[in-house]
Amino acid sequence: MKPSAYRYARPSSVAEAVRLLADSDGGGKVMAGGQSLGPMLNLRLAQPELVVDITGIGELASVREDKDGIVYGACVTHAAVEDNRVPDAANGFLARVAAGIAYRAVRNRGTMGGSLAHADPSADWMTTLTAVDAEMLIAGATGERRVALAEFMTAPFSVALDEAEFIVGIRIRRHSPAARFGYFKFCRKRGEFAEAMAAIVVDPAAGVSRAVIGATDSRPIVLPDISAYLPLSPERLEAAKAMVEGLGIAGEPIKDAMHANAFARALQQVKP
């Protein structure tokens, strides 16, 4: 299948992009690497009137460090993170996650911002960056605003962006050297979307002990404080599983058990 016809623009600045989107009367769609949008276009599931290619905006493919965090431009690719071409705010955790996203040929064009804007519940960044409490930097007609990623996704494939807004960056707090991470996903085929997924961040210096259950049918589930299960013991592991199972995320025992087991696997990676 081939996409339906659309118009194309490649603005040079964030302001131009916002203006193009605002003028498109809801028919505009932002494209970065196009690795999520491309299949949707080919299948004609997405039929935008205008595609606004934001890769011409130089600052979006850059990284900015501030006092206690790093802002990744929306157009930074998974491969750039995987290759450590950018600093890793989570002590190598981001690179590890990136290396497991889809396939290298996809990672060479797929971007952090694009993946988060696409908001597929089973995608890697949505869950893992929610775990590191990433903040979305969003440009729109009234300037830039910030939203916690945990609040950003509203429903499957749906995010809190109005029609003239788009993600310009992702800010991640710099984690302390003592921070520990757990990440587990279960996929039927390597590189494909996950059936179950969980990410854990424990950073005592920042008072963080947080888990996120992903690959649900909708938004990731945030468990803000899982310190009761750490350090792990066999009893605590069982309790952790029971707790997640009890959430009834999928409303179906087999899938709920998978979520619980994914959480348990991630938890087992968090060394004391």
Binding site: E195, I254, M258, N261, A262
Partner: peptide, 11 residues
């Protein structure tokens, strides 16, 4: 065939 079945995920 020799297989390993993961009872946690059914893989």
């Amino acid at each position: 065939a020799v297989v390993a079945v993961d009872p946690d995920f059914g893989s």
